[in-house]
């Protein structure tokens, strides 16, 4: 029935894709609130959403100030994993010798729990930002390498032969064929990496730091201040979402030609 008449502005708004996650979020929050009321969950186990919002409102300046160190550590760790990860992936994809030496070791190192060795970085580098960056880097590094290796390796060998037969130098062929071809895979790795870098930074703050959202989190757990703890979690989630969105925007700008982007970019063509 409703398809027959022109959709009203309200239903148009309800169908906007950016609104849908918010609607789901609202439903979750309502469910959360209802669950607390119905099952009578005490506030020291799960705080009510209203209390969390209150903390977010009253402590906002403090929370904002604490989220900057976390953001810096995340971004620097993430950039480091991109700057080191992509060239290493290039080497691994380009040479079987390098692959046989480096790749198994990389997987091996990845199996070590970062949380377990994070205190070591505090011992080595003190309580500053460096251990956090390293923790963020270590978590964000692996997905970039794995995706980029796959991207570099999935180039059609005929395509490379074609470019080589045109007398293209190695570098020229790489820039014209291999690198653009690998970009979609690299970006999917970067998107996973940026969210993991947030986790890494928080792990770094857990083990030894006196600033950052991770520090707020740990302090509030210590004092059973659950509303503050949940507020900190909300901020971390927001941080992850914003950084993910940024990488997504850059991806759209960098590879408008890719299948995953077509629907948005080439409307009406």
């Amino acid at each position: 029935m409703s398809e027959k008449k022109a959709p009203g502005s309200v239903s148009k708004l309800l169908n906007a894709s950016w609104l849908r996650p918010f609607l789901l979020l609202v439903m979750i929050v309502v469910g959360w609130d209802l669950a607390i009321r119905i099952f009578g969950i005490p506030a020291y186990q799960i705080p009510a959403p209203g209390d969390v919002v209150k903390v977010l409102y009253t402590d906002w300046p403090e929370l904002l100030a604490q989220s900057w160190p976390t953001t810096y550590a995340t971004l620097l760790g993430f950039l480091a994993s991109a700057v080191f990860g992509i060239p290493i992936a290039m080497l691994i994809a380009g040479s079987r010798t390098v692959e046989s030496y480096v790749y198994p070791l990389l997987v091996f190192s990845q199996s070590i729990p970062k949380v377990a060795i994070a205190p070591l970085f505090v011992v080595w580098f003190g309580f500053g930002i460096v251990p956090k960056i390293i923790a963020a880097f270590l978590l964000g590094f692996f997905p970039v390498v794995v995706s980029a290796v796959q991207g570099f390796k999935s180039v059609d060998p005929d395509m490379v032969d074609l470019a080589r037969a045109m007398k293209g130098s190695r570098l020229r062929v790489f820039c014209a064929v291999n690198l653009p071809h690998a970009l979609p895979a690299i970006f999917s790795g970067l998107k996973v990496s940026v969210t993991l870098a947030v986790v890494g930074a928080v792990v770094g703050e857990f083990v030894g730091s006196n600033s950052g959202i991770g520090y707020v989190l740990q302090r509030s757990i210590g004092t059973f201040d659950l509303p503050t703890m949940f507020a900190a979690l909300v901020i971390l989630a927001l941080l992850g979402v914003i950084l993910f969105w940024l990488v997504d925007r850059i991806e759209r700008f960098a590879i408008p030609w890719h299948v995953s982007q077509r629907a948005d970019v080439f409307i009406g063509s």
Partner: peptide
């Protein structure tokens, strides 16, 4: 080749010009 193997990020004209780029 059997497949056209055009570079998906280049338009048709730039794809045709690829040997020119490769040979500088």
């Amino acid at each position: 080749f059997q497949n056209a193997l055009l570079l998906p990020w280049r338009n048709i004209l730039n794809n045709v010009l690829m040997p020119i780029d490769m040979k500088n």
